[in-house]
Write a protein that binds this DNA or RNA. Structure first.
Lengths: 209, 209
DNA sequence: CCTGACGGTGAGCAAGCGCTTAGGACGCCG
DNA sequence: CGGCGTCCTAAGCGCTTGCTCACCGTCAGG
């Protein structure tokens, strides 16, 4: 068996979406949702961007909402994995928090079109799908909160309000998806570095890079 | 002439919208837009919430987009005024910045339903209206940047990247409109105080309150 | 060659959309 | 009382929406 068969799912942007036509439709939907928002996007527009007829969409997805759900699910999974990888890495609490913020922000900047859909079209989802996604977000929250708590316990941080600071840190990172590339001229790496520094200041880390 | 005639425009929430029916429609629109988003809201829904027939909307507003524009315009004006009042107040740069963040955040929390429409439905506006609103946002940006610059010049702050930090501070404040009251249990005053402290940390203010 | 599954299309349905228009209820002035 | 302007409604127009359905080309297996 050729090695390309199983590995191709990981490196190209939406490789985990398996029928090729389904992937093209999903990518088209991400673009359209990010540009105009979920409700302002028509199924005809999505199918058109993917080079297909309007009816083709319903061969691969049951409803327009299912498309949004798939995008939201995969996007949140990836963002959470990025966060956790840095959080579980080596180094002091400050180093891990800076790393986590840096890569989380970089992800939101790099994939700002996906991130915008994932973070800002949440209540277009149906009841069940929305609660599923909210559970994923709580895991992101817990990941950041744990890092901050560890830093406080180790004496590295000075944080009077841990839940509030956690909320603010995540809010700051997530909002990158809204303004990125609308303002222009900053690379994802630069924003990541800036935000890592700002967050270290917010938690009162003693030494700064 | 009775004194109530001119003063009533200032204290009640949308007092500047003068025909009474027009105000009721606008308030209904704010609620609906905040709950479901602009595109997912129907003119019938807005009129229904205001206790009127669908056609009544078009006596007071030419289009649904004009309603959004009026909301956006008034909301941005008010938020900018709140920011500037604190920025032009007395005290050191640190005190004024903290004050500005505190009141700006409090406004976004208090009027989170209005703020959500104002901050997150921007690209539902038409071309001309959108550029008009963006000009107002640039003034908010300039107000914050000036305060930070003054603090740096006075030796109160330590900020390596002033434009980037300005962006982050505003992003942090604005995003309050997204999560407030979805999370619950924090009062606008508490969030304002927390955020003022966090922002002082971000700019490296030497003394903290 | 036939067969059947797969993946796609063209046409269109019922419902809902933003918005318009003809007309009615009401109060004010003569 | 009539005439008029203001504010609102009932009805509906033209169009678009999410989605369906009857049908078709392609290709592997026998």
């Amino acid at each position: 068996m050729s090695t390309a068969e199983k590995t191709e799912g990981e490196d190209l942007p939406w490789g985990e979406v398996t029928p090729d036509a389904a992937r093209r439709l999903l990518i088209a939907a991400v673009e359209a949702f990010a540009e105009r928002g979920y409700h302002a996007t028509t199924t005809r527009d999505i199918a058109g961007r993917a080079g297909m007829s309007p009816a083709a969409l319903y061969i691969h997805y049951k409803t327009k909402e299912e498309l949004l759900h798939r995008i939201s699910r995969i996007g949140h999974d990836k963002a959470l994995r990025v966060l956790r990888t840095a959080a579980n890495g080596p180094g002091s609490a400050a180093e891990r928090l800076a790393d986590a913020v840096r890569s989380f922000v970089r992800w939101h900047a790099d994939h700002h079109t996906t991130a915008r859909v994932v973070q800002y079209e949440l209540d277009a989802l149906g009841e069940e799908h929305r609660t599923e996604i909210i559970a994923l977000r709580r895991q992101s929250d817990a990941t950041v909160r744990d890092m901050i708590n560890e830093g406080v316990r180790a004496g590295e941080f000075d944080v009077p309000d841990v839940p509030g600071t956690t909320l603010a840190v995540l809010s700051l990172c997530i909002d990158v998806a809204r303004w990125f590339n609308v303002a222009g001229q900053r690379t994802p790496d630069e924003v990541g570095a800036l935000y890592a520094d700002l967050v270290l200041r917010m938690v009162g880390a003693r030494q700064r890079g």
